[in-house]
């Protein structure tokens, strides 16, 4: 197994599996987010559950963080190795003639999503840490909807979220389908898999965008 751990295929499999894990997480995330558009009470209930359930906080959250870290660290490491594999670049490289832009620029879309994650963690995760542990505020299952809507009040933040979700869509457009190829799945079902992954790549980021825009244009009036 030591040879396997060092192999290029193993590294690709790690990228594929961590990516698929994050894809599943995104589906859960967008489902909960979208309840904020449909029912503030439901959104508050789900958010409170995710924020205080011990299984979520002490098992699922560390696994999620590990999945994110592994995906990004491995992605950056592979990009460095790939660049080293062609130390002298072509003077003319017509990449668009044989491969779509999204597949050739996963590092760009990925780094934008990573930068967005920094903002997202600052906005929500850091806020939760301060609220729960530094200020030691009591549990308030009704606060989440108002706090979320408030976050999307500034146009700059809503704009950054929309741009990040467009880049996430581009990342998923190639990455989701690519993970199946890496896992060795390329058969008569591949066309259906590709259609599903591309539909997912459009629908999930679009729902995130709808949530951000909905709350920006429907602020809570005090």
């Amino acid at each position: 197994m030591s040879g396997f751990a060092k192999s290029s295929i193993a590294r690709k499999v790690v990228m594929a599996l961590s990516g698929l894990f994050l894809v599943i997480f995104l589906a859960l995330h967008v489902t909960i987010n979208f309840t904020s558009v449909l029912s503030p009470d439901t959104f508050n209930a789900w958010s409170h559950f995710m924020g205080y359930n011990l299984l979520v906080q002490y098992l699922m959250q560390p696994i999620l963080v590990a999945g994110v870290v592994v995906h990004f660290v491995m992605g950056i490491a592979l990009e460095i190795q790939n660049r080293q594999a062609r130390s002298i670049r072509y003077a003319r490289y017509n990449g668009g003639a044989n491969a779509p832009w999204v597949s050739r620029n996963m590092i760009i879309t990925g780094l934008v999503v990573l930068a967005f994650l920094g903002l997202h963690m600052y906005d929500f995760w850091a806020h939760e840490m301060v609220y729960k542990y530094l200020e030691a505020n009591p549990e308030d299952p009704t606060r989440y909807y108002g706090e979320t809507v408030e976050k999307f009040h500034p146009i700059w933040r809503t704009g950054l979220y929309v741009v990040a979700f467009v880049l996430l869509a581009l990342h998923l457009w190639h990455g989701f389908a690519s993970s199946f190829q890496t896992m060795g799945i390329n058969n008569k079902y591949s066309a259906a898999i590709r259609s599903f992954t591309r539909l997912y790549a459009i629908v999930v980021p679009l729902l995130f965008i709808i949530v951000a825009l909905y709350h920006h244009f429907n602020p809570i009036t005090h």
Binding site: G3, S7, S8, I9, Q81, N98, A99, S103, R104, S178
Partner: peptide, 24 residues
């Protein structure tokens, strides 16, 4: 196992499934 090990030893990059190879 042997061919992949040798491929890695030669210093080629990692496949990111762009499909450029198939086209060209």
């Amino acid at each position: 196992l042997s061919m992949v090990r040798q491929m890695d030893l030669e210093g080629f990059g990692n496949c990111t499934n762009t499909g450029a190879c198939e086209v060209e």
